[in-house]
Amino acid sequence: MSIREKLDISAYLVVGPENTKGRPVMTIIKDAIEVGFTCIQIRSKVASAKEMIKLTQQASEAIAGAGKSEEVTLLVNDRLDVVLAARKQGIKVDGIHVGQEDIPVEVCREYLGENSIVGLSARTHEMLEYIKTVDVSQIDYFGIGPLHETSTKPDCGLDLDGKVITRSFEEISKIAKLSPIPVVVGGGVKLIDIPQLAKTGVDGFFVVSAVAEADDPKQAADDLVRAWKLYAPKAHKDLQ
Rank of each mutant, 00 (worst) to 15 (best):
D161V: 13
V107M: 11
C156M: 14
K218D: 06
F37S: 02
P233S: 06
P17R: 12
Q196F: 12
G95R: 03
G201L: 04
K21H: 12
E126L: 13
I103A: 05
G36I: 01
E129T: 03
L178M: 14
E213V: 10
G90T: 13
Y231H: 15
Y111P: 08
L160C: 13
A32M: 02
L230N: 15
S69V: 01
S116V: 05
R109D: 06
R79N: 04
M127A: 13
H236D: 11
A47T: 13
V225Q: 05
D8W: 02
V35K: 09
V208I: 03
C39Y: 11
V189G: 05
D222Q: 15
I29V: 15
D193F: 06
E51F: 01
A64I: 09
D31T: 12
V164C: 13
P182T: 00
P195G: 08
V82E: 00
G143I: 04
L128I: 12
D222T: 07
A176Y: 05
S48R: 14
V93M: 11
S173Y: 06
L80W: 00
D193L: 09
A59T: 14
A220M: 01
D223K: 15
G22Y: 10
D81S: 13
D135A: 09
G145W: 05
H97W: 04
I175S: 03
T200I: 11
V82P: 02
F169I: 00
R79L: 00
Y130A: 06
P104A: 02
S151R: 11
L178K: 09
S48E: 11
S151L: 14
I165S: 09
I144Q: 05
A210S: 08
K88E: 15
V107F: 07
V184P: 08
V83M: 06
T150A: 07
I53D: 04
I3R: 14
G204F: 03
G67R: 05
S44G: 00
S60V: 07
L178I: 14
S44L: 10
V183H: 01
D31P: 05
N77F: 03
K199Q: 14
F205A: 13
L230V: 12
V134L: 03
V202H: 08
T152K: 02
Q41N: 10
L230G: 05
A62Q: 02
I28A: 00
P104T: 01
A232R: 07
A235G: 03
G22T: 01
K132V: 05
K92T: 12
S209D: 06
L158M: 11
A86K: 04
E149V: 14
D215T: 12
